[in-house]
Amino acid sequence: MTRIPLNKALKRLSISEPQVSEAEAERRMFERRWNASNRVRTMLACLASALLLTPLRRP
């Protein structure tokens, strides 16, 4: 799961002294990993749905 490592990385990011370049770099890294994990979860959910629906198509 990617949520916990990503949440920990966000927690380490200092918001008291925001550094625009640091925040942008963290955001790009976060979004890249977050979107990749969402794509994997979506594909797995679609595959699982297809496998569960397959027996219903057979007569």
Results as ranks from 00 to 15, higher is better:
residue 1 M to L: 10
residue 1 M to E: 07
residue 2 T to D: 02
residue 3 R to W: 09
residue 3 R to S: 12
residue 4 I to R: 12
residue 5 P to Q: 08
residue 5 P to V: 14
residue 5 P to W: 10
residue 5 P to S: 13
residue 6 L to T: 05
residue 6 L to Y: 05
residue 7 N to P: 01
residue 8 K to W: 05
residue 8 K to V: 09
residue 9 A to F: 05
residue 10 L to A: 09
residue 11 K to M: 08
residue 12 R to S: 00
residue 12 R to Q: 00
residue 12 R to V: 05
residue 12 R to Y: 05
residue 13 L to P: 01
residue 13 L to V: 00
residue 13 L to Y: 04
residue 13 L to K: 01
residue 14 S to H: 03
residue 14 S to R: 06
residue 15 I to S: 11
residue 15 I to W: 05
residue 16 S to V: 06
residue 16 S to A: 12
residue 16 S to H: 08
residue 17 E to S: 11
residue 18 P to F: 01
residue 19 Q to W: 04
residue 20 V to G: 03
residue 20 V to T: 14
residue 21 S to G: 10
residue 21 S to W: 02
residue 23 A to K: 04
residue 23 A to V: 10
residue 24 E to W: 03
residue 25 A to M: 02
residue 25 A to W: 01
residue 27 R to H: 10
residue 28 R to G: 01
residue 28 R to H: 09
residue 28 R to K: 15
residue 29 M to N: 12
residue 29 M to P: 00
residue 30 F to Q: 05
residue 30 F to G: 01
residue 30 F to K: 00
residue 31 E to Q: 15
residue 31 E to R: 15
residue 31 E to H: 15
residue 31 E to K: 15
residue 32 R to Y: 07
residue 32 R to E: 09
residue 33 R to K: 15
residue 33 R to H: 15
residue 34 W to L: 10
residue 34 W to K: 15
residue 34 W to P: 02
residue 34 W to Y: 15
residue 34 W to D: 08
residue 34 W to N: 13
residue 35 N to S: 14
residue 35 N to I: 15
residue 36 A to D: 12
residue 36 A to G: 07
residue 36 A to W: 00
residue 36 A to L: 09
residue 37 S to R: 03
residue 37 S to H: 04
residue 40 V to K: 11
residue 40 V to A: 11
residue 41 R to N: 05
residue 42 T to I: 07
residue 42 T to H: 09
residue 42 T to F: 04
residue 42 T to Q: 11
residue 43 M to T: 13
residue 44 L to E: 05
residue 46 C to G: 00
residue 48 A to N: 04
residue 49 S to Q: 10
residue 49 S to E: 03
residue 49 S to T: 12
residue 50 A to C: 12
residue 50 A to H: 10
residue 51 L to C: 11
residue 51 L to E: 07
residue 51 L to W: 11
residue 51 L to Y: 10
residue 52 L to F: 08
residue 52 L to S: 08
residue 52 L to G: 01
residue 53 L to T: 08
residue 53 L to F: 09
residue 53 L to P: 02
residue 54 T to R: 06
residue 54 T to A: 06
residue 55 P to D: 01
residue 55 P to C: 04
residue 56 L to P: 02
residue 56 L to F: 07
residue 56 L to M: 13
residue 57 R to S: 06
residue 57 R to T: 01
residue 58 R to M: 04
